[in-house]
Amino acid sequence: MTDIERKFLLTVPSSTANLALIREFVVAVGVQAGLGDADVGKLELAVDEACANVMEHAYEHDETKEVVVRATFDREVLHIIVEDTGRGFDPSRVPQEKLDRLIAAKQSGGLGMRLIKALMDEVRYEFIPGQKNELHMLKRIR
């Protein structure tokens, strides 16, 4: 592995039918970055959750919109950005209720973000008004 930063980009129409394609993309990037099997699985799930959030909440199932996944890595860290131009939606602000309370309230809200936070080493949301929203996720390469 060299010290050169490697960059990958995937742009897909905002349809949940493309989630499988997005997962294949990030799995391939994770393997190339040198992540182990368990971390590749975590990356796959985290990016799937982030993209599903964009499709369902930021774009509200508008399939004319696009979801952008950017990946860069060097020897130490893999950085994923999920980008959209939809309704600003900060998934990290969804309240994190306990599982039994969600069941009692017949809600599943926040499960995806809870998973993302548990799966990745760093997560942050950037809202650029009038331009785009970005969910940044970092995974350290051990």
């Binding site: 997962r23 069941i103 599943s108």
Partner: peptide, 16 residues
């Protein structure tokens, strides 16, 4: 071979 929160939510929504 794979489940995301959407699938987990299905289990949760029916169990009660």
């Amino acid at each position: 071979t794979y489940i995301s929160s959407a699938g987990l939510g299905v289990f949760m929504s029916f169990i009660e």
